[in-house]
């Protein structure tokens, strides 16, 4: 087990003939992902490393039956690309694209819900079920199969956290970057619910950052259930208010989104908040050991 993706994932790549699309198609296949189709309007009949290209998702669905899609379409077209995937009822849509206008994201979110699909991102690195499948742009060499779930709003910190775990011999079930935008399709809470239901995941690492209240909502959820133990890390703990720290969503405004409140919310429900990624790994190690002895 793992969450969201595994050996049965049949992936469609939107904008497969572009620079990013073709490069990452190659890397995802190298990881073992079954890429069954690509879409670039006007390029039907071509192929990328043998993966057939279609003009529309409708055609790709008819021929190749994908059950997940990844979007490399640039900012201005990304919202439309998600809508096309949702209109064709692709159950899992992963949008890597950065700089999707927020008004577009609000419409997209609503439509995806209405179509009963799941969107991850935008502005995210994607996800990996270690040893099984990868969707997105995370570096292939970092992962080791195991029982720790990782969920993060930051791309690079996800890599670094995974590296930290793997170097200590701690494997991962699924590692997922949910994205740094103000509106994202899948939140911390959504992901925690999935990890709670996954027998392979024993411990969850949550990497939050300043901005919004997604961490507080996750803490509330954690307090309301008896699920997997969670270790948290918050980046931007010294960031000043009113400044957007790179991610569109990483800003403290109107007294909302500050780090202290997030740390407090986690502490109140017994979730340790580590000061470094190394310390996160240590806590995970302790929790896994305690779980084994139980």
């Amino acid at each position: 087990m793992s969450i969201l993706i595994d050996e049965n994932t049949r992936l469609l790549v939107q904008a497969i003939t572009g620079r990013e699309g073709s490069l990452h198609t190659s890397r995802m296949r190298a990881y073992g992902t079954n890429v069954v189709a690509g879409v670039t309007p006007g390029k039907a009949g071509q192929d990328v490393e043998g993966v057939p290209v279609y003009n529309t998702i409708r055609d790709a669905v008819r021929e190749a039956k994908p059950n997940a899609s990844v979007i490399f379409v640039p900012g201005p077209g990304a919202a439309d690309a998600v809508m096309e995937a949702a209109a064709n009822e692709i159950p899992l849509i992963v949008c890597i694209t950065e700089h999707m206008p927020v008004h577009d994201a609000a419409k997209v979110y609503r439509y995806v819900q209405e179509q009963n699909c799941r969107l991850i991102g935008p502005n995210c690195p994607g996800l990996v079920s270690a040893g099984k499948a990868k969707i997105g742009i995370m570096p292939n060499q970092l992962f080791k199969q195991g029982n720790t779930g990782v969920v993060s709003r930051s791309g690079t910190l996800t890599y670094e956290m995974t590296d930290e775990l793997t170097s200590r011999g701690i494997g991962q079930s699924t590692v997922i970057g949910i994205g740094g935008d103000p509106i994202i399709g899948t939140t911390f809470t959504d992901t925690l619910k999935l990890f709670d239901e996954d027998p392979e995941t024993h411990v969850v690492v949550l990497i939050g950052e300043i901005g919004g209240t997604d961490e507080e909502e996750a803490a509330e959820y954690i307090g309301s259930r008896s699920g997997k133990p969670v270790v948290a890390f918050i980046s931007g703990r010294t960031a000043p208010a009113g400044k957007r720290m790179g991610h569109a969503g990483a800003i403290i405004t109107g007294g909302v989104g500050g780090p202290d409140h997030k740390v407090q919310a986690f502490n109140e429900v017994g979730v340790p908040v580590a000061d470094t990624l190394g310390e996160v790994a240590e806590r995970v190690q302790e929790m896994l050991a305690a779980g084994v002895s139980r």
Partner: peptide, 10 residues
């Protein structure tokens, strides 16, 4: 990466 830079600030 934004998260990594924020962590570096910290």
């Amino acid at each position: 990466g934004a998260g990594l830079v924020m962590m570096t600030l910290d």
